[in-house]
Design a protein around this nucleic acid. Sequence first.
DNA 1: TGAAAATATGAAGGATCGTTCAGTTTGAGG
DNA 2: CCTCAAACTGAACGATCCTTCATATTTTCA
Lengths: 231, 231
Amino acid sequence: MLTSPPPHLSPRKRPRQARATVTLDAIFEATIQVLIADGPRRLTTTRVAERAGVSVGTMYQYFPHKQALFYALNERYLDLVADKVEATCRAQQGGSVRDMVKALVATYWAAKTERVEVTQALYKSVVELDNEAMIEAFACRVDRATATMFASAADAAFADLHTVVLTLLTSIFGTVRSVFERNLPMDEAEAVLRQLVVMCVAYLDAVKLPSDGGMAPDRSRTVEVPVHDAA
Amino acid sequence: MLTSPPPHLSPRKRPRQARATVTLDAIFEATIQVLIADGPRRLTTTRVAERAGVSVGTMYQYFPHKQALFYALNERYLDLVADKVEATCRAQQGGSVRDMVKALVATYWAAKTERVEVTQALYKSVVELDNEAMIEAFACRVDRATATMFASAADAAFADLHTVVLTLLTSIFGTVRSVFERNLPMDEAEAVLRQLVVMCVAYLDAVKLPSDGGMAPDRSRTVEVPVHDAA
DNA sequence: TGAAAATATGAAGGATCGTTCAGTTTGAGG
DNA sequence: CCTCAAACTGAACGATCCTTCATATTTTCA
């Protein structure tokens, strides 16, 4: 969590006892289930509470209002995805560009397909939520991890790494989202994904600096890419 | 409009007099404005009517309920975008792959940036709408036009045109959407767009069939790509 | 011009939903 | 076991909101 949520969206209190944690998890899971079953419009505080097996009042002990619940839910999810991407990036340090792209696409796709309905439900719950800051924070984490990874590539270097990474991630995330939106059948979806890897590799090959005949980039230590705050 | 909307979402009646047409346009425009100013959650039948300068009852003469209004609004918009893409595809018949990609990206981007707030507002209004069929219809039109265009390319041919087009469009549309979602500053957004073109061209170059030394594809007549219904 | 059709009005009904709070139950620590 | 804080309950309130319909106004056209 790079940035804490805006004050009006932050939780009321944190659970101190074990049962409270259980309750919170139940509320989150119930929210997802109601979102899937009834859609965002029929997602009601009462319905969520009922499904979670708690009373409405309990929800309001943790969240000042419905929006805060949504916010926390999405934040939880994005944090999880960011974790996975970061792990992948770490694992691919020093590898080939092709492997990096493959791993990146696979990781993101896996994270989104693990529970397809959840992903689609969350895409919808995002609406009407001041989630600019949240997305920004997510993007920041992923940008940084990806840039660090590509900076360590064994077989390529890039002049404008920032733009390259931005393009790559925007297109990967966007493409995956588009695949979900179009509701493509599995076989076509997977075909597009495979092609996406081809596309990204071809792109990186097109924009990489000409290799200096044998002088491989120094990989003796990990290059940390500085945080670049987009104003 | 390839498919008519599901019965429960179709308009109640069509305007027969001039003033009715004016009213309808006012309602659509008001919907957009309220969507932008107040967000989808505060978008109320009363508010829309008020902004449109008509009474609530008038709205219900044309739409059986609020959702139908949303549906019609989005359908209108998508039809417009599809029109533009089709026009571009027609204009690029027989050109080079690079020009085609450039034109495609430019057209889609222009359509979405013409009124940025509208685009973002509509992205949000789409939620919670049985718009699968609508998106499917849009995708169908655009897929077909794009496939026809690329089939006529002067400098390349493709083995699996269907998959290539699907990949290309999914990534272009997805990337544009992602750019909007991240709210990138204009200069970065445009940089990504330029890179996107590079990316697509590199991809097409990577998957095109090896040119048969001088035997250019027959461009004497336009090849119509058959409609491919995704079951 | 006059009647029929199309269009517009907006107060009122009915239903749902978010949120509160006074009171109860449960768990932790001494 | 006792006490206090933490956690939980759910009926009730107030605020909207969607939709209808009886009525009024405007346009068409014979």
